[in-house]
Design a protein around this nucleic acid. Structure first.
Length: 157
RNA sequence: GAGGCAGGUUGUCCUGUCGCGUCCUGCUUCGGGCAGGAUGAGGAAAGUCCGGGCAACACAGAGCAGCAUACUUCCUAACGGGAAGCCGGUCUGCGAAGCAGGCCGCGAGAAAGUGCCGCAGAAAAUAACCGCCUAAGCCCGGUGAUGCCGGGCCGGCAAGGGUGAAAACGUGAGGUAAGAGCUCACGGCUUAUCCGGGUGACCGGAUAAGGGGGUAAACCUUAUGCGUUGAAAGGCCAAAUAUACCGGGGACUGAGGGUUGCUCGCCCGAUCCCGGCGGGUAGGCCGUUAGAGGCAGCAUGUGAAUGCUGUCCAAGACAAAUGACAGGAAGCACAUGUCAGAUGUGCCACAGAACCCGGCUUACAGGCCUGCCUCUUGU
RNA sequence: UGUCCCGUGGUGUAAUUGGCAACACGUCUGACUCUGGAUCAGAAGAGUCCAGGUUCGACCCCUGGCGGGACAA
């Protein structure tokens, strides 16, 4: 299904902090991609000794985040336009990436920061998002999964 | 008919495929998911420039300080907003004064006080450089002279010159040694009183007094208003620990605190307060979307607006939904073509709610309406 | 969401009772040198973010806008 529900978005504060402090990143124009991929059964380690908040549960194998810096797009309406285009492209292209993660029994935090300075068009965004997902799957396959350990240490540092 | 300016108003629509937030209903393998239905950005949502609602602080009090406003009347919940006027400035038209219209105005007080006014100039505020005058007083000389002539001292004057943005009412006459609102006539200004008109600012007139340059978007004075802090206000729930340790202070004769710049007042106050070094939490709900709401009609009013009646409106996210793609229609521009229809290409703005309202300001493709100006054509 | 600050040559800064927009670096020209650098001499380069207003006169005071920055658990 080409859906993009609220649960596929990265909304939890602790998970976002985890992504940006521990995540790996690479650049593929026009995106700076930050990602963190770990086995599904290690999720409780992020929230030791307590319930997992509802917006941190992985109903889908991935949580996704788009960011557009104000530096390059001054108007709020332009930032919204870019974010909507990227989300649309992710929605259309995510299926093979999701099935790849399901085969690995992994869950993935993914952030894409739009670093271009010009307003993208639909076709180019579709193409570059597809390329990013391909590169990501390749790297996860090659480098394996991360192991979380005690997240309290991660956030404390 | 075309173009320009100003103001007001409006600011795209339809279909298909895929998709998103919220709410409701139902189903379910129920901290989740599925199906169906409803609903989902603006005139500025923006800037955050004002005013309110609302909330907390003792349902809030005094003084000082501070801030804001400033022609009048009215509208409004309120305002620094708006309406109608008054006055001043400026432009245009007709013109003899004057009248009409457009535009602009932070438009109280300079006769309460203080400060400032570069350069130039004698002087920038109890004026005297050049200049004008020696009538009165004193002295000297000439001469027969208590007079006259000449000179000096003590002085008098502010007309003329020149400087400047600005020079101590203007013109004319009288007056005088020379002069001066010193006096008079006309004109103009300020203050006070009175009369008439107007709710009022103010206007018209009369009488009396006066002679004071500008600057308050300099300090200031007067009048009026303002308690402070803003949804990160504030309330509730859940989770988590440490009343650890070190130093200092204090315990009713009061350390410290109470979201107010200072002082007071009032209130709270001992498992307390300050500093250091450490530890824990980072989640949810309410506040939170229906209100000084829109539209139409009638009535009142010059108008802003108000009253009555009817009718229509239900975004509510929270690393933040309201979208993407395709096709078509409408509108505009250009080209081809034409009696007209048409065809092709391109364009279709500014911009995205974040507690809610009323204003202001700023951005804006195109359409429509009104007024004014210019040009052209016809009558 | 709210609060505060700043805007001057190409760059960094001055300019206070409101009275000629100044300085350094850089740039350009010339001298010195075989050439360059350094050094010396000289010159150009702004009307103060924009638009109004107050005033005789505005970088300075007032109003509105534009742009940039900082802060608030």
């Amino acid at each position: 299904m080409h859906t993009f529900k609220k649960n596929e978005r990265l909304g939890n504060f602790r998970l976002r902090q985890l992504l940006f402090t521990r995540g790996k990143h690479f650049f593929h124009y026009p995106f700076r991609v930050v990602w963190l991929c770990f086995p599904r059964e290690e999720l409780p380690k992020v929230f030791p000794g307590k319930m997992i908040p509802s917006n941190a549960r992985f109903t889908y194998p991935s949580k996704f985040l788009v960011s557009v810096p104000r530096r390059n797009f001054n108007k709020a309406v332009h930032r919204n336009r870019v974010k909507r285009l990227v989300r649309e492209a992710f929605r259309k292209n995510k299926n093979s990436f999701y099935s790849f993660l399901d085969r690995k029994n992994a869950c993935c935090l993914l952030g894409m920061i739009y670093a271009g300075k010009n307003m993208p068009d639909y076709a180019a965004t579709m193409r570059s998002v597809r390329e990013v997902l391909d590169i990501l799957a390749e790297r996860i396959d090659k480098e394996g999964l991360d192991h979380e350990g005690d997240a309290r240490q991660i956030i404390g540092e």
